[in-house]
């Protein structure tokens, strides 16, 4: 039973010009990779990955559309409704872990890194953004003890290019036990292509339009597999995603119509 819990926003952290973290007065013990449904009363409700998973729940949000614009108007003490945490989180295997995060996709990877490092694992994180000022959680990852490799599209920090460029070069030199990725779906599709060449098992966190969030409405079912992103996901194994001709190609909007990411 996931009843709506309406709670106060305890603290708001400006991570970058376009990204904010909202720390909520809600004690949770979530698995990194799990999500919550976030209700802004009178506006809408959207799924968000937990970026702080133990103790007070945190969500880290990129300002993108109408809902997130309204979310950014909130002050500390204002109310948000939460259902969750829900869904399948990441599962840690092995000792040498590689994280690949693009943009706000670093949000669920940061608590994963912290948990893994506490358990004595070795963590390398490739963090990418459009530009240096939009890089997320680089300090947080370093503080936790991760090795951080950076890419920016415009070359203002780290390697000029994409996370996948850094990944391809790194895997020529080093090997890892498990890879975890979250970011734009086309980036994740490329990550899976690269890690497959190196036989590196990979888990990816997907984003889809959700309605119920509890596995019954059918809105987020992945073609080719029948897997529900809100229930069997939002994190999936590479093997599962390769069976889906939807992954990396299209998603379904609120009406359920297919919307293609790029060329059909």
């Amino acid at each position: 039973m996931h009843e709506m819990q309406v709670v106060e926003v305890k603290r708001i952290v400006k991570e970058t010009k376009r990204i904010r973290t909202f720390i909520l007065d809600l004690d949770v013990n979530a698995i990194p990779g799990q999500f919550v449904m976030v209700w802004l009363p009178g506006v809408n409700e959207k799924p968000m990955s937990a970026s702080y998973t133990k103790g007070d729940l945190g969500i880290t949000v990129l300002r993108l559309g109408d809902f997130t614009r309204r979310l950014f108007e909130l002050s500390e003490g204002d109310l948000l409704g939460i259902r969750g945490p829900m869904g399948r989180g990441f599962k840690i295997y092995g000792d040498r872990l590689l994280l690949v995060g693009g943009g706000v996709g670093v949000a669920p990877l940061a608590p994963l890194a912290e948990e893994a490092l506490r358990d004595g694992k070795e963590v390398t994180a490739i963090v990418g953004a459009l530009t240096a000022s939009e890089l997320l959680f680089v300090d947080r990852l370093k503080r936790a003890g991760a090795r951080v490799l950076i890419s920016t599209d415009d070359g203002t920090a780290g390697r000029k290019g994409f996370t996948t460029d850094v990944l391809a070069e790194l895997l020529k030199e080093e090997s890892f036990d498990q890879c975890f990725t979250c970011g734009p779906e086309l980036m994740m599709a490329k990550v899976l292509d690269i890690t497959r060449e190196h036989r590196l098992p990979t888990q990816a966190s997907l984003h889809r339009y959700f309605k119920c969030g509890i596995g019954i409405c059918g809105q987020c079912v992945l073609d080719g597999t029948g897997l529900r992103v809100c229930k069997e996901g939002p994190t999936f194994r590479d093997k599962e995603l390769r069976k889906s001709h939807e992954f990396g190609r299209y998603w379904r909007n609120a009406a359920g119509q297919k919307i293609y990411f790029g060329r059909r």
Binding site: M4, M37, W39, E45, K211, C212, I216
Partner: peptide, 26 residues
Amino acid sequence: EGNPNPTVIEVPPRGLLNSVGLANPG
């Protein structure tokens, strides 16, 4: 596109309340 979320919520005991609003691709 149907109605804005929340469109499906759980209501005790063992009930669901939905206002999907006939969202469908046509």
